[in-house]
């Protein structure tokens, strides 16, 4: 199949899907007030984007997101690399991660809020709880993938580096880190998706400010077009981040064979 034909099938599939969204409420297959037609939602997207309140909420959310994800990267990647190279540490920490794996981490925002609320003003407690929950969610994929990346470094690479007289620090910086990078990055990609999920989830569960709260306020007052519009915007943000990731990685890690 030619590239052109594949691309036109792709475009057609998306158009059909969007067409269904437009047509379903107009033909009465779906109730108009609960699923507004695409064109109305897109109009509302424009209104939401012009809304100063929304923009300040986005700023708040973005700050939380960056803090949570950043925290997870700073802790998870070094921890994972260390676990990959030190069996003892791996044996200690891995069972703990296995235990935490099925726990819905977003839900912990509520107990965290309670515990932190005793020590600090509620505003700050809520903020901290949300950031911690985002970090918690991202921690496991980042740590696990960094562990695998560091553990699966070809022994011959390390042997030849040692034979060339490279000390442990140099081996870590010039062999282990680059070799683990592809795995770390694929962990980061999962973490990106988890981080947005956790952000919106935490904001839905513990209201206050932020995009999740804005979304839910629109639901509460029955402005369903706005609900759909914010949904579209958040989905686009997730997609945008993923696209930025793929674009950056493809340029930054040219030696990497295979898909990013």
């Amino acid at each position: 199949m030619t590239r052109l034909r594949a691309a036109s099938i792709s475009v057609a599939a998306v158009l059909v899907l969007l067409g269904c969204w437009e047509a379903a409420p107009r033909t009465g297959v779906a109730p108009d007030q609960s699923l507004p037609p695409l064109s109305k939602v897109l109009g509302e997207v424009w209104n939401v984007l012009r809304d100063g309140d929304f923009r300040s909420q986005v700023g708040l959310s973005a700050g939380r997101w960056a803090a949570g994800l950043g925290l997870a990267v700073l802790i998870g990647v070094p921890l994972g690399i260390a676990m990959g190279r030190a069996q003892v540490l791996r044996r200690l920490v891995e069972p703990l991660l296995a235990l935490l794996y099925p726990v819905p981490k977003v839900a912990l925002v509520i107990p965290l809020l309670l515990v932190l609320g005793l020590r600090m003003p509620s505003e700050r407690a809520g903020e901290t709880a949300r950031i911690v929950v985002i970090a918690l969610g991202c921690l496991i994929p980042l740590t696990v993938s960094a562990t695998h990346g560091a553990a699966e470094v070809e022994p011959c690479l390390l042997w030849s580096a040692r034979a060339a007289g490279a000390g442990p620090v140099r081996r870590l910086l010039t062999i282990v880190l680059p070799a683990a990078l592809p795995q770390v990055l694929s962990g980061l990609r999962i973490a990106l998706a988890v981080s947005i999920f956790s952000l919106v989830g935490a904001e839905l569960l513990v209201r206050g400010k932020g995009v999740g709260a804005y979304l839910f306020n629109a639901y509460d007052i029955g402005r369903y077009e706005r609900v759909w519009a914010v949904t579209v915007l958040v989905a686009l943000a997730g997609l945008g981040l993923d696209a930025v990731y793929a674009w950056t990685v493809r340029r930054a890690v040219r030696w990497w064979e295979g898909d990013v």
């Binding site: 609960s34 947005i196 369903y224 759909w228 958040v234």
Partner: peptide, 27 residues
């Protein structure tokens, strides 16, 4: 099938589905 479904999976995978929840409740 790959050409038709890939953009849909590509759009759906990284999109935060939780943001859809209020919309799902409406629907």
């Amino acid at each position: 099938a790959r050409a038709a479904l890939r953009p849909i999976v590509g759009l759906g995978f990284p999109a935060p589905k939780i943001a859809m929840f209020p919309a799902l409740v409406i629907l």
